[in-house]
Simulated assay, not measured.
Amino acid sequence: MTQITMDLRSDKYYYRSSWLQLIRPMTLTGTLTPVLVGTGIATSKGPIQLDVFIALLFAALLIQAATNLFNDYYDFRNGQDKEKWTLNPSDAHGPPHAVVAYAAGSMLGISIIIGAWIALTSSLWVILAGILGIAFGFFYSAGPRPLCSIGLGETVAFIFLGPVITILGYSVQGHSIDIQIAAISLPFAMLIASMILTNNIRDLEKDSTFRKTLPAILGRARAINILVALLSIAYITVLGLVLYSVIAWQSLAVLLALPLAFRLRWALRINAKRSEEIKGMKWAAWHHWAFGLLFSCGVWIGFLIN
């Protein structure tokens, strides 16, 4: 551990993969689709400010991308994922370790400027939401006791990539927060929590030396049961919202994502091969993309038709 710290201070390590891998674009649907749905619901109630929508989306994506960068940065500092880094620049396609932190900090800085403009344009409470989002995004991985290391990773994602970002997409267009938009945000909360939980189930053994994640606290079997519950509630919530005419019936297109949910669960079955378990995270990401985009399309198509 001492040797790693010394090498990090002298910037000797380089990321083996690319910047794209560091940013993890497959996870960015956690921000993209809630903003699309929140804005779609706002559109059904009146005209929207396109510039505010684009600004919010860009700022939110920057915060999530920065969180991903900090996650890899601090994981390595804490002695994890050493295979992702190399001392030989010719073996690397990504940046030096120290540059990752500067890039993440720059992303947060830009998002703060954009957030201030959004707040002045719409509502000042955006500042509070932005400050909390940035703080929790940073301390998710940073600090002596990162939130992800004490079993709070799923909870943080549930709150900020579920209700908070969906409601922001809606409220910055000039609408008051109500029970309907809160209910519409629930599927996204369930989905992102399921993705974090899948990652923690996959990394249960690896994380045992540093993190006390939810699967480590509850055990693998119980964690998988919670995962199934999260996925099930996401679909049940959409069905209920359609049944009570809160959203258009076209939103039932999310049912097309069910095969991916089943595939995810199959990858984590008892006696599954380690290679299948590792691929479970990819299935979780693909499921989030499919569900989120289908939900977004359903909301927007329903608005345009109706």
Rank of each mutant, 00 (worst) to 15 (best):
M6E: 14
L8F: 09
L8G: 02
D11F: 00
K12D: 08
Y14P: 05
Y15I: 12
S18K: 03
S18E: 04
M26Y: 08
T27E: 09
G30P: 03
T33Y: 12
V35D: 06
V37S: 06
G40L: 14
G46N: 03
P47C: 05
P47L: 12
I48R: 04
Q49C: 11
A59D: 01
A59V: 01
L61H: 02
L62D: 03
A65E: 09
L69G: 06
D72G: 09
D75N: 12
R77K: 13
G79P: 02
D81P: 03
W85H: 14
T86K: 10
S90D: 13
H93V: 06
G94T: 03
V99E: 11
A103K: 01
A104G: 15
A104V: 02
A104N: 05
M107I: 01
G109S: 12
I113V: 13
I113D: 00
G115M: 08
I118F: 02
I118T: 02
I127H: 05
I127Y: 08
L128Q: 01
L132P: 07
G133Y: 02
G133P: 04
F139W: 15
Y140T: 06
Y140E: 04
S141C: 05
G151T: 07
L152K: 09
G153P: 09
F158S: 04
I159Y: 01
P163N: 03
P163H: 04
V164E: 05
L168D: 00
G169F: 08
S171E: 10
S171D: 06
S171Q: 11
G174L: 02
D178S: 15
I181V: 15
I181Q: 06
A182E: 03
I184H: 08
L186K: 02
M195H: 05
M195F: 13
T198Q: 07
T198H: 05
R202E: 09
S208M: 11
K212V: 09
L214Q: 02
P215I: 03
A221F: 07
A221N: 13
A229W: 13
A229V: 14
L230E: 07
I233E: 00
Y235A: 05
L239M: 14
G240A: 10
L243H: 14
Y244H: 12
S245V: 14
A248I: 00
A248T: 00
A248W: 07
L260V: 01
R263F: 03
R265Q: 05
W266Q: 15
L268E: 00
E276M: 12
K282Y: 07
K282P: 00
A285R: 07
H287N: 14
A290L: 15
F291Q: 05
L293S: 02
F295H: 06
C297R: 04
I301Q: 04
I301M: 11
L304P: 00
I305L: 15
N306W: 13
